[in-house]
Write a protein that binds this DNA or RNA. Structure first.
Lengths: 111, 111
DNA sequence: GGCTCTACTCAGCTTGACTAGGTACCGGTA
DNA sequence: TACCGGTACCTAGTCAAGCTGAGTAGAGCC
């Protein structure tokens, strides 16, 4: 994957992580691993942690510290009501964009 | 439209403009007006011009100065071979992202 | 002790959209 | 003549967010 994905992820990665947390709660390392598994192979670990801290500060998620069998304690994140609302807004914005892109791709560009 | 679109446009606006230019050549003012018309109501004029200069510097477009009946001469941009290639790469990246987002939206999130 | 896997954190860099202006040409009107 | 309003382009500075490249630490294994 080239450099285009890096810029495209700005704004969408946040939505992706929130969408993951809408399914079930998770912690940073787990999310990073899952993203890598899904083909987002060059997402840096630091990026995910920074994002998590950001959405925590914005009050979109709740955090709980859970001891791990192996390694340091995990910070488990779960989506709260405000986060749910924000995620819905994200999907609306995404749909808007995706719709227009699809039209453009099919040659509907009549500027 | 909220602030989410601003971040989401990073990386995609470039593709959008290139896709427009794949349809036919156009100039900045025209592209801005068309984007506004399509619902991208808060895209700043300056953003489009900056983007056009950027893709010109990268050699993705050819430029021709055409006199206008009203106002200063237009800088008409058209996609060249390199731009076409870059656009195809953009569509591949976009598809990758859109596919994963769609899955996530339908609850396919199993981290 | 050294290695690997787990798990989180941080400083500094880069990209790209936004803000908030500015320049300049033209036609119409008071 | 003077001054708008529409057309058309450009620029300096700000901010958000992902990346780089580190660092810290605990647990288990050889």
């Amino acid at each position: 994957m080239g450099k285009q994905i890096t810029e495209m992820l700005k704004g969408t990665l946040e939505g992706i992580v929130l969408a993951i947390l809408a399914g079930r709660s998770a912690y940073g390392y787990e999310i990073t691993a899952w993203l890598r598994d899904q083909g987002f192979s060059d997402i840096a670990e630091g990026t995910v942690y920074a994002l998590l801290i950001r959405i925590e500060r914005r009050g979109l998620v709740d955090v709980e510290k859970v001891p791990s069998e192996k390694g340091p304690p995990r910070k488990v994140y779960s989506l709260n009501a405000q986060g749910q609302e924000y995620l819905e807004e994200f999907w609306r914005t995404w749909s808007f964009l995706a719709e227009r892109l699809d039209k453009l791709r099919e040659g509907g560009n009549r500027p």
